[in-house]
Nucleic acid binder design. Sequence first.
DNA 1: TCAATAAACTAAACCGGTATAGTTAAACTA
DNA 2: TAGTTTAACTATACCGGTTTAGTTTATTGA
Lengths: 332, 332
Amino acid sequence: MTTLYDVAKLAGVSPKTVSRVINESPLVADKTRQRVLKAIKELDYHPNAIAASLKRNRSNMIGFVVPYGSDFVFQDPNMMEQLRGAHDYLTAEGFELIVTAPIYKKDALKEAVRLTKNRNVDGVILYPSFGVDEIINEFKEKNFRYVTLGICFDQQKNNFVEVDQTPGSFLATKHLLSLGHRKIGLINKSRSFFMYNRDDLLMGYISALKEAGMEFNPSLVREGDFTFEDGYRKCQNLIEENPDLSALICASDPMTYGVIKAICDRGLNLNREIEVVAGDNLPLTQKMFPDLSSITNPSYEQGRLAGKMIVEIINESQDIPGITLKTELVIR
Amino acid sequence: MTTLYDVAKLAGVSPKTVSRVINESPLVADKTRQRVLKAIKELDYHPNAIAASLKRNRSNMIGFVVPYGSDFVFQDPNMMEQLRGAHDYLTAEGFELIVTAPIYKKDALKEAVRLTKNRNVDGVILYPSFGVDEIINEFKEKNFRYVTLGICFDQQKNNFVEVDQTPGSFLATKHLLSLGHRKIGLINKSRSFFMYNRDDLLMGYISALKEAGMEFNPSLVREGDFTFEDGYRKCQNLIEENPDLSALICASDPMTYGVIKAICDRGLNLNREIEVVAGDNLPLTQKMFPDLSSITNPSYEQGRLAGKMIVEIINESQDIPGITLKTELVIR
DNA sequence: TCAATAAACTAAACCGGTATAGTTAAACTA
DNA sequence: TAGTTTAACTATACCGGTTTAGTTTATTGA
């Protein structure tokens, strides 16, 4: 291993001067800089980030902690989009992304703490999940840096990037109503799943109905857990309880796939007999089912902004007001 | 920050003794250990992995480098499965996983080098891609640890976990032949895509034909780039050139989705008019198209074994013979 | 009983950078 | 010209662990 000292020796300067050259400090004369750069090249020197981290007390690493175990996460396209967004921003900014998916939901926050305390990550991006309140309190107390993908507790004002699904579901419902549909099902997200404390999707749905002077019928709504299987089940269930169902809005694309399968399995014609609005507008959905209207879900942007926000929080050493993104509707 | 010294002071022992307790060394008397553990608890002490890494010259971090940019990678289910396998093994073994997806293919290997030299990862898992020969040579020379997901160069004997697709495509072809199909299309993987130097999929296909006494017809074969779009295009193309095509084998599931779309778009009936064998047997495919036979692709296992192998290489400080997994066929 | 050995522990150097404080040389000011 | 300021650079402590070599205490053996 060649070290900074080897370079200093060869260039005939002090270690600090080499350090300055590496960090592009202006406090080095051009002649000296050239000499140091030459030595660096000659020795094929690469600075040791670990050593720098130790002294700087900053690792330039960000933890990305996802709950529910890897089999859920790495197969959930929305989480992958969020991860992708965070990855793209953070690597461009010189950060390394440590990804971890603890098997048990309740371990997710412990993981965030572990990464911060033991691994010295500069910050963590995490999902709302059970027991988050106390951990976030611990984070606040100890001045740990974090950004949550969604709101974790009622009074949270800072350090989150959430998606408000009201506009998308409002527009979707309105669109379906305008097409003449009167019995519109909704496969909502489960309230308990991420401890979401807002019921945006349902609110958008209800207010569109209200606007049209229609009554809200709870038997047209189901809560789903974001999986294919649950989309399938809940769709079957909805159709059985509401034989005159003619349209269906889904909270997520994996559930949409389940819904499509259920509709086909019942021998019904997708969109002709039951019109479906997809939940995320993922690329695969667009390609496989190009004539499905879809609520958009800005997962990639959410992840990107979470990356941006954590960097800001780190650099400015203070909390940042949360961001709320909005869903839209793509009519096809 | 409480440090090891604070603990040592409170417990009335030397720093080294605390270090021994942390690392579960047997060279500490039980009484002393208890005293130290009490002090650790009292001070809520967490060891600093960065400091330990610096002296140990080992970071317990593994780099996972994927080429082609994040939009491909995080949306390619097979890569995610490999990542998931590696994640599960490595985190269980106490390693952190740094994931990075450089935008340009050619940067993937530079990334691997950067992670090793600058970030001090203990090893990297990487994909075969262009220019890999020289980099692997550099890795060998400098004694860097690596495992490749596939074979990178002709003479590679060590440090890889690859999948031999011969058995799956042989069995798939045989199966289709046994059902009476005589014109069986193959959407192969592109040879140049990963610099695969073996043509296993094609070989399995050809040898099954040969066994059945049939002639190999190159116009039934297309190379695909693993995307939905290319599956769609190549399927259209195959059908146009071979109107009597009655069955089709796909090298991957995303391409299978494209194929299915193309078949439906032509008004043909999937499986009744053109029988399709899927390429990966991904969970989503199983759920969406439960009566599609499929070649299996042990991506998760491949990733897991890559994780296992890199740990072995690190611990034993020597190369490990490569592993070849085999595909199978699931008939549905 | 006392030397030899093993067990338990410690002091101080070290890993490879960065930060602090201080030094030297050149440039500027009155 | 002497005094002051600025630019460029250096010596050394430091980050928080681990390692090395050595010391003290307890145990064993003849």
